[in-house]
Every structure is written in structure tokens, then in C-alpha cells.
């Protein structure tokens, strides 16, 4: 009797749905949500990074002091530099997840449209069409940027604890400045489509809020691009030296 009633209950039970992480990562919608969340994390960091960079205009003393302070955030609860390392791990994971999801989704998207139209038409905006290669350019730039100003491997000054002098030495090389400015323009384009797209992906968008998110995306893109480019322009014009 017990066995029989047991099998009855099994027969009427609804199928179990897969785990949250499994169902999210396996679906295109969920993977996009991962891209949106990691994108927003990186965007929030970039706003803080850009604002911090602007301290360069207050001189070497203040900028280097700011650089040293970042290493003390969270003390005494956190050990020296721990906040910095937590931020690095979070950002590193965000970049990797964002990139892996983008790669997997792009492969899928290309496979979903194997035949092209004979009558080709220009589609979507420039920012939208350049998301994939723009993302690749940004990833390569991040590698260069870390080698230049974090590990100081390719920095001509390479003095630990003197970010101001390292920065000025780096931007004294015109090709580096040009590369930096191009990367920041790519960043602006990426954010212009990416921020609104994240709002759409996370379900925050609606017909009523669409304009707001588009305006916000453009404002963020403009603010970050101009803010970041201001530093090499400052070095080029001699305002920062």
C-alpha cells in the first residue's frame, strides 16, 4: 500500500525545473543577463575610475596620494591592499564572464543566420554593429593598459608608487596616446549601445522608459569618453607634466 501510494505521488508530481544557474547560463536570455550584470559592474567601476583619474589635474602630490589611499580602503577591517585585490578579482571575473558569454552568444547568432541576403542593407546604428569587434578592441586595450600602468611592464618610467610620473611618461609617447584615445572612443560606442541594451536585457526597459535609458546611455558614454580622454589631452597640451 505504501509503495503504491508512493508511486501515485510520483506520477502526479510536476517535473522539476533545472537549477537557477543552469537554466540561466544555458539560455540565450540568461546569458545575456550575465552580460548585462557584468557590464553594469564594469560601468560602475569605470565611472569611479574616470573621476579618480581627473585628480591628475590637481598635481603629482594629490594624484599619488589618491593612488596610495586606494590601497588603504577598508582598513583596519581589511588588510592593506585587500580592497584593491577584491576589486581586481570582481572586475577580472566580470571581464571573463562578459567575454565568454559574448563569444558563445556570437557563435550561436552567426550559426542562426548561415545564409546572407543577396540584397544587403545597412542595418542598425554604428554603435550596435560594432559591439563585437569593439569589445575585442577593449579587451586588448585592457591587457595593454594593465601592462602599462598597473604592472608597469611596458612603462618607460615604471616607478612603483608614483602613478603620476608613470602616467605622464606613458602619454609622452604619441602612439600610446593615439591608441588610448581610439580605445576610449570604442568604449563610448560600446556603452552607448550596451547600457540601453542592459536595461532591455534585465527587463528594466519599457515603452515609457525607453527614451530615458537611451538618453542615459548617451550621457554615460559621452561623460566617460570625455573624462578619460581629458587626461592624455592634458599631457599633450602640457597642462599635466
Amino acid at each position: 500500500m505504501v509503495l503504491a501510494s508512493g508511486s501515485m505521488a510520483l506520477a502526479t508530481r510536476t517535473e522539476r525545473t533545472p537549477s537557477l544557474i543552469g537554466s540561466v547560463w544555458r539560455s540565450t536570455v540568461g546569458k545575456k543577463a550575465v552580460m548585462a550584470v557584468t557590464g553594469v559592474i564594469m560601468l560602475a567601476y569605470l565611472v569611479a575610475h574616470m573621476l579618480g583619474n581627473l585628480k591628475v589635474f590637481f598635481g603629482a602630490g594629490e594624484f599619488n596620494h589618491y593612488g596610495a589611499w586606494i590601497r588603504t580602503i577598508g582598513e583596519p577591517f581589511l588588510h592593506h591592499k585587500w580592497f584593491l585585490w577584491i576589486a581586481r578579482v570582481v572586475l577580472g571575473s566580470a571581464v571573463v564572464l562578459h567575454g565568454v558569454a559574448a563569444f558563445q552568444l556570437s557563435r550561436r547568432d552567426l550559426a542562426a543566420r548561415p545564409a546572407k541576403y543577396a540584397h544587403a542593407r545597412r542595418r542598425a546604428s554604428y554603435a550596435t554593429r560594432t559591439m563585437r569587434w569593439g569589445g575585442v578592441i577593449l579587451a586588448l586595450f585592457i591587457v595593454w593598459h594593465i601592462l602599462d600602468l598597473t604592472t608597469l611592464t611596458v612603462n618607460p618610467n615604471a616607478e612603483e608608487g608614483r602613478p603620476y610620473e608613470n602616467l605622464v611618461a606613458s602619454f609622452d609617447r604619441p602612439p600610446v596616446t593615439a591608441l588610448y584615445i581610439v580605445a576610449m572612443l570604442a568604449l563610448g560606442l560600446h556603452i552607448r549601445h550596451g547600457f540601453w541594451s542592459a536595461a532591455q536585457t534585465l527587463g528594466a526597459n519599457s515603452p515609457r522608459r525607453d527614451r530615458l535609458f537611451k538618453v542615459l546611455a548617451n550621457a554615460l558614454a559621452l561623460l566617460l569618453t570625455c573624462g578619460f580622454i581629458a587626461v592624455p589631452v592634458g599631457v599633450m597640451t602640457g597642462v599635466v607634466s
Binding site: 544555458r26 547568432d109 543566420r113 542598425a124
Partner: peptide, 12 residues
Amino acid sequence: DAEGFGGCTNTG
């Protein structure tokens, strides 16, 4: 997803 449709890149 199982039918092989691509994902959304919000091109509109």
C-alpha cells in the same frame, strides 16, 4: 533556443 534561433543583440 532549442530550435536554433539566435540570441537578441537589441538591434531593433
